[in-house]
Simulated assay, not measured.
Amino acid sequence: MPRPRRNRTNEPVERPADLDAAIPFPPMEAELVRDLPEGDEWQYEPKWDGFRGLLENASGALRLWSRNARPLLRYFPELEALGDLLPPRSCLDGEIVIVRDGILDFDSMQTRLHPAESRVRKLAAEIPATFVAFDVLVWDGEEHWPAPLAERRATLEELAAGFVLSPATRDRDDALEWLDSFEAIGLDGVIAKRRDAPYRAGERTAVVKVKPEKTADCVVAGVRWKADGERRIATLLLGLYDDDGHLDYVGSAAVAPTRHDEIAAAVLPLLRDAPERRFSEPNRWGGGELEEAAVRPELVVEVRYDKVQGRRFRHGTKLLRLRPDKEPEQCTWREVRPPLEPDDPTLAGLLGSVPAGD
């Protein structure tokens, strides 16, 4: 028997008490792998950067469930209109996304998780979300989830008229091109799904995901000290230059104890005559309680990162090496946000249509 899926606090994800028994829950997950699998049994889709959602009306009312069994429709009231497209006792699996200026905007997703209904509805009118469907589990009372994905995808394309469907391809070369070009429009990688597998709630056995390994050269703009009173560096504070030559703070990179002396030798001399600079970052990045100091922006380091969210690296980066061969002025936003090339895919092209907020 598969182990029950657990949330971030390591507690089993509970099935919503009144969810129709015909609907499998929690949603299928994906295992992170380094390389896209190949073979006729695989189908490839974009990895959307939004909130996973099961859209269903099996109880009689339209509901949108998160992977952790939280009701989401309250935060995305503009999606209530999708209820008119679903026959009774139906369920689709998909992703809620927000598109702004042709790019997926995860920051705007997070602003929706607001306690005030008036604020949520204002944002829904100004920056509407889109539900991107990629699987059909139940339709008009008929359970499709036991069928292999190849059949479910054909059913989805046949029945889910009016819904925005995630594109899918069986061509691995196309999927590899997606990996190279998706970053510019905010997509998060590529998903590969076994076409011969049924929908297995909460499991990762038939779905894998690949994220492109990304590195960036950043300017060291400051340091954050360890809380041990010995003035040892805990993290480097990183910056990138915008088009106007302003150095934006973009995140941090932890300094491993084994590399502290090497990094300190290069960084500590830059504390002298450093410009006045303040750094701020949301608590989810951590470290806000530690003392910090600016340094002269003269040192470049290479870091590995997974995602840029707004004007920050979403998570902490991994420090790879010093780059004494590179000038700080060369570290710009273009390095992590390359401009779209004429033949790159666009969100409008992938989705067929985009929300009014685009």
Rank of each mutant, 00 (worst) to 15 (best):
R121H: 08
D135Y: 01
P328E: 00
L159W: 06
A234I: 07
A69R: 03
E335Y: 07
D188E: 12
D228T: 01
L82H: 00
G288W: 10
W285V: 07
E142T: 15
D248H: 15
V136C: 04
M109T: 01
T235K: 04
R296N: 15
D49H: 04
R312G: 03
A348T: 10
A216Q: 00
G60F: 09
E302Y: 11
A81P: 00
G287Y: 10
T235S: 12
R8G: 02
D261R: 15
W139R: 00
R323H: 05
L19A: 06
P328L: 00
G310W: 06
C218D: 05
K318T: 12
R119N: 13
L237T: 05
A294F: 13
K226A: 11
E126D: 15
L187Y: 07
L322G: 08
L104F: 02
R70Q: 14
L236H: 05
E292F: 06
V223G: 01
P87Y: 13
S108V: 09
R6A: 08
L351K: 01
D217Y: 00
K326H: 02
A253N: 01
R259V: 04
P338R: 03
R153H: 13
A293F: 07
G357M: 05
A234R: 13
V33F: 14
A168L: 06
V336W: 01
E203C: 02
R272A: 15
R6K: 14
W139M: 00
I263W: 04
T205Y: 05
K307R: 09
A293M: 03
S59F: 15
E292V: 05
A125E: 12
V207T: 13
E41G: 09
E262G: 11
R272P: 04
L104H: 00
G83T: 05
A253P: 00
P115T: 11
L19I: 06
E126S: 13
L237I: 14
L165A: 05
W333S: 04
D180E: 10
G310K: 08
F51T: 08
E143H: 13
T169V: 08
L73D: 12
V354Y: 10
W285H: 15
G83F: 01
G245I: 07
T317C: 09
M28H: 12
R323I: 03
A61Y: 02
E78R: 02
L86S: 02
G286V: 12
A154D: 12
C218V: 11
A160D: 09
K209N: 03
V303M: 03
F106C: 07
P297Y: 01
E262T: 13
Y199W: 02
L350E: 03
D107R: 08
E341M: 06
D18H: 10
E142S: 09
V97A: 11
D101Q: 12
L113V: 15
R121Y: 09
G310H: 04
K326A: 02
R119V: 14
D243Q: 11
